[in-house]
Simulated assay, not measured.
Amino acid sequence: MPRPFDVTTETSAGVSDVVAAFSAQEYWLARLAAYGGDSMTLDSLVVDDDGGIVVRTTQDLRQEMLPGAIGRLLPGDTAITRTESWRPATDGQVHGEFTIAARGVPSSGAGTMVLQPVPAGSRLRVWGSLEVRIPIMGGRIERYVADLIAREVPQMQQFTASWIAGEA
Rank of each mutant, 00 (worst) to 15 (best):
G121K: 13
S16D: 09
R123E: 14
A165C: 06
G37W: 02
M156Y: 05
L130G: 08
S162K: 09
Q25L: 01
V126Q: 06
L73I: 05
S39L: 03
L32A: 12
R151S: 04
E152W: 07
T160I: 06
A13M: 06
Q63K: 07
T8G: 05
L32C: 03
V15L: 06
S85R: 15
L45A: 13
A20D: 01
A168N: 11
G71C: 04
I149Y: 00
A120R: 11
A79F: 00
D50T: 12
L148F: 04
A21S: 10
S12I: 05
D60F: 14
S44R: 12
V7E: 04
A79Y: 01
V55A: 15
V114E: 15
D91E: 12
I53A: 08
T58E: 11
D60A: 11
D17L: 04
L42D: 12
T9M: 08
M156N: 08
S44L: 10
G111A: 05
W163R: 15
R133E: 13
R56E: 14
Q116A: 14
L66R: 08
Q63A: 11
M156G: 13
L148A: 10
D50Y: 09
H95K: 13
L130D: 00
L124I: 06
E167N: 14
V19Q: 11
G121M: 15
V114N: 04
T99Y: 10
P119I: 14
T160E: 01
W127K: 06
S85P: 10
